[in-house]
Write a protein that binds this DNA or RNA. Structure first.
Lengths: 218, 218
DNA sequence: GTCTATATCTAGATAGAC
DNA sequence: GTCTATCTAGATATAGAC
């Protein structure tokens, strides 16, 4: 009985770890596949192959395709929104903006699949995240745009449309993940090298400072 | 016999017109559906429903899904590339650029489905257009970047990375079609109204002239 | 917990009536 | 030329052996 207890404890610990590991493997594989083919274009078999696990395991861990997609998207959303926190009213405008945009570019280069999955979700009409965009993102952008407006009123930033400014930053930075393949085709080389990333980053900051009127050393 | 001849001629003319009409209806419906769900996420049934025709007709006119997709993409590619022709070495830089970027924005607002379909194709790894991007687009951008470089050398434009400049213009303008839903969610209103389009256009030009150093009236 | 085998449904495609 | 009815393949999902 003791042996039974011990072995079942050891077993459940093992099972817990196996479950955690497998779930992580599946989520990562799902991110890659959903990113390429979107929700409907992706098959559970593709994800299973990418994860190196039998298809039935995905159903065992996540129940169905919809739930697996939601779990993946949930994680991505948090990471997509996080950089916005860099914009703080009391901080220095140039430092804040550099921090914010730097994080957006880093996200594109470090988690291109996550960026593409998010892009796919929006392209397909945001069936899942639409409610969140209309509330959480809407409010967050309104709040951050007010901060930029204050900086403009204080003469620290050039006059601009602060709401559309976010659309421009998002598109400029995300394009390096979402349109990666087009960019690589035009550059005629791998756009994932350190050099290529540095050049892209320099260009984005160059554009950014000109738009904000912060080119000259402060 | 005369009657037979006449009626068969009339019939074939009619059939020709019906064919043309139906093909146009199907292509337009296919563009809308492929734009939302990508190649694999789209079903022939969806396109048939969107076109208001039986599914079998699509196969009758286009053979298979692949061919239908190619036909749609083919048309879009030409329209996607066309604006680049505005950039001409002998023309005035500001006029040329205004013309080019104006056409890109117009494309986003007038043919959002076409833009989204192209975006979907790239996101999914450009399985169809990859060869074209590596040759036609690669060469075209190299050629147009040289024109910008000349203008910079002539002091007519601020120093910048002219290749990445194209990535920035594409992303800034296309975002209004591709991420339409996200933008509408943030703005809290329909982004397809004339007012919203005018505001977006003004913002894009504002950014553009600052990046190019062409803000002041020349 | 894991995975093979299978049930059920829906996709692309086509044959054949009209 | 058009469209109903149907074939076959491949999808999601699950039951049940291990």
């Amino acid at each position: 009985m003791n042996e039974g207890l011990l072995s079942s404890v050891a077993e459940s610990l093992d099972k817990g770890r196996i479950r955690q590991d497998n779930e992580a493997i599946i989520l990562s594989a799902a991110e890659r596949v959903f990113a390429r083919y979107g929700f409907r274009g992706t098959t559970m078999q593709q994800i299973a192959d990418a994860a190196g696990l039998p298809k039935a395991n995905l159903h065992y861990y996540f129940g169905n395709k919809q739930t697996l997609y939601l779990r993946v998207l949930e994680e991505i959303l948090q990471d997509w929104l996080a950089p916005l926190e860099s914009l703080c009213a009391s901080a220095d405008p140039k430092t804040s903006l550099a921090d914010y945009v730097g994080k957006k570019i880093a996200f594109s280069f470090e988690r291109p699949e996550a960026s593409r999955l998010f892009a796919n979700e929006i392209l397909q009409g945001a069936p899942v995240v639409s409610p969140l965009l209309k509330t959480q993102l809407h409010d967050l952008v309104a709040q951050k745009a007010r901060i930029l407006d204050c900086w403009i009123a204080g003469g620290k930033l050039r006059q601009m449309d602060t709401t559309h400014f976010f659309f421009t930053v998002w598109s400029m930075t995300q394009t390096y993940a979402d349109f990666d393949i087009q960019i690589a085709a035009v550059l005629g080389s791998d756009s994932r090298t350190k050099d290529a990333q540095a050049r892209a980053t320099a260009h984005v900051f160059d554009c950014l400072w000109r738009i904000c009127g912060l080119e000259e050393e402060q």
